[in-house]
Design a protein around this nucleic acid. Structure first.
Lengths: 240, 240
DNA sequence: TCTGAACACTGTACAGAGTACAACGTCCAC
DNA sequence: GTGGACGTTGTACTCTGTACAGTGTTCAGA
C-alpha cells in the first residue's frame, strides 16, 4: 500500500543511497513480461536486467507478489482513457470494454494476475473513477453501478485469459489446427458418435466451420459484449 | 486424447503388469487438490499418496498437464445433471449455471486450470451435450447456441476464480477485513480524496457497506446471472 | 521350455524457482 | 569522529517437473 502510493514516510534516513528506483524495477519487470510472458518474470531475470543480484530487489519490494501489484497498478495508470461525453451509453460502455481489451493486448500478462484484493493504488483508482463515469447518469444505484462495472470487467478479463491461452496453445503445440485435427481424426471419428452426442456434434461442427477453429476469441468478444449491453439495457429500461 | 477415452489400442502387450490404474492416479491427484488446493498437486505428493516413486507416474501419464486434463474430464463426468425439461428457459439456463457453480464449489481447483484446447474427453462431451439441451429450442442458430453457452460458462468460471481468490486472500492474510481496514485507514484517508475520485469513493463506499466487504461473490453471481439471462432474452426476443 | 524384447519401476540428478541469512561496505545524525 | 542504520552481495536451502540409466518382470515366438 505504501509502495503503491510511493508514501514518502517509508523512505529511510540513514544508510547508503539506493542504486535504483522502484519505478526502474517495475519497468524492467514489465518489459520482461511484455516480451516473454509472466513466466519469464523471475526475480533472477529482473535483477539481471538491472545489473544487480536477485536478493537486492528485496530492498525495493517485499516480495514477488507486491512487485506484480506494482506492475498492474502502473499499467492501469498508463491506460489511455477515451472521452465519451455526450455519446449514447452503449457506446460509452463499449469504449470501456475496448480500453480494457487494449490493456490486455499490450500487456497479456495483466489478464493472468489475480485481481481480488486488487492493488488499491493510484492507477486503479483513476481507472475505476473513469470507468464509473461511463456508467453514471443511467439511473442505476451506486451498488448497481459498481456491480455492473465489475460484471463488465470480469467478462473482458476472462475473455482476455481465454484469448491468451488460445494464442499460447497455438504457439507452443508446434502443430497448427489442421495438423492437430488430422492426427486425432481417427480416434475422434470412432468416439464422437452423433447418436450419442447429437447436439454437441451439431453445434460443435457449426461453430468450428463458422469460425475456422473450435474457439474464436473475436466472435466470443462480440457476442459477449452484445449480451452484456442487452443485459444492462434491461436493467435500465426496467426502471422506466 | 487416447488417455481421456481410455483407448484400448494404447495398452501394451509385453512387460510386467502395472501396479496401479490411471483412475487411481487421477483419484489421488483429485483428492489432494480438493483437500489442499491445486498447488499441493505435485508429482511427488501424488506419488507418495500412492506409495510409489514420483517418476513412476510417468508410465501412466506423459506429464503433469495431461494429469490435470484427466482430472478435469473426470470431474465433468461426475457432475450431477438436473433434468429441467418443460421448465421455462430462464430456469433451465439458471440450472446450468448452478451446476457449474456447484462443480467449482466441490472442486475449487477446477476453476484455476486453463480451459482452452479443453480436454476433449467423455466427461466434457457429456457435459456439453447436456448443457446445450438446456438452451435448445429457443430459436437460436447452432452458432449462437455454442456462443451463448460459452458466454455463460465463461462467466461462471471467472466468478469462481474470483470467489476462490477471495477465500484464499481471507485465509492466508491472517487478518480479517476489519483489521486490514484499520491498519490501512490512515494512509487511505490521506490518499482517497473524494474531490479527486468522487464517483469512486461514492460507489466504493456504497458497495462496501452494502456487502460488508469490497467484493461480494454472492452479489456478483446474482447480478451477473441476471444480466446474462436478460441478454439472452434480448437475443431471443429480437427474433420475434 | 527357453530366450530376447518390451515394459514398469527405482534411484539419482539437474536446472531453475523464491527467498532467508550472514557478511561487508556505505552513509547520516549526533 | 564515530556508532548505528541501511543497501548490496554471496551462499544456501527447499521445492518444483522430469530426463536418464539401471534393474527386474513379463509375454511372444522359436
Amino acid at each position: 500500500m505504501q509502495l503503491l502510493w510511493r508514501d514518502p514516510a517509508a523512505v529511510p534516513r540513514h544508510g547508503p543511497r539506493q542504486g535504483l528506483t522502484i519505478d526502474q524495477v517495475v519497468a524492467a519487470a514489465t518489459a520482461l513480461a511484455d516480451a516473454e510472458g509472466l513466466a519469464a518474470v523471475t526475480m533472477r531475470r529482473v535483477a539481471a536486467g538491472l545489473g544487480v543480484v536477485p536478493t537486492a530487489l528485496y530492498t525495493y519490494v517485499p516480495g514477488k507478489a507486491e512487485l506484480l501489484d506494482l506492475m498492474l497498478d502502473a499499467a492501469y495508470a498508463r491506460m489511455p482513457r477515451t472521452g465519451t461525453d455526450g455519446q449514447p451509453w452503449r457506446q460509452r460502455v463499449a469504449a470501456v470494454a475496448a480500453e480494457n481489451r487494449a490493456l490486455f493486448e499490450t500487456h497479456p500478462w495483466a489478464a493472468a494476475v489475480s485481481t481480488v484484493r486488487p492493488p488499491l493504488g493510484p492507477g486503479l483508482m483513476a481507472k475505476y473513477e473513469h470507468e464509473l463515469s461511463a456508467l453514471d447518469g443511467l439511473g442505476l444505484t451506486d451498488v448497481e453501478l459498481d456491480a455492473a462495472l465489475t460484471h463488465l470487467l470480469t467478462f473482458v478479463q476472462a475473455w482476455a485469459r481465454a484469448a491468451a491461452d488460445t494464442r499460447a496453445a497455438r504457439r507452443e503445440s508446434a502443430v497448427d489446427d489442421g495438423q492437430w485435427w488430422a492426427a486425432h481424426a481417427p480416434l475422434l471419428a470412432r468416439v464422437l458418435d452423433p447418436r450419442a452426442y447429437p447436439l454437441a456434434v451439431r453445434a460443435g461442427t457449426a461453430a468450428g466451420t463458422a469460425h475456422g477453429s473450435a474457439y474464436s476469441p473475436e466472435h466470443a468478444y462480440d457476442f459477449g459484449l452484445r449480451a452484456i449491453l442487452d443485459g444492462f439495457a434491461a436493467l435500465i429500461g426496467g426502471r422506466g
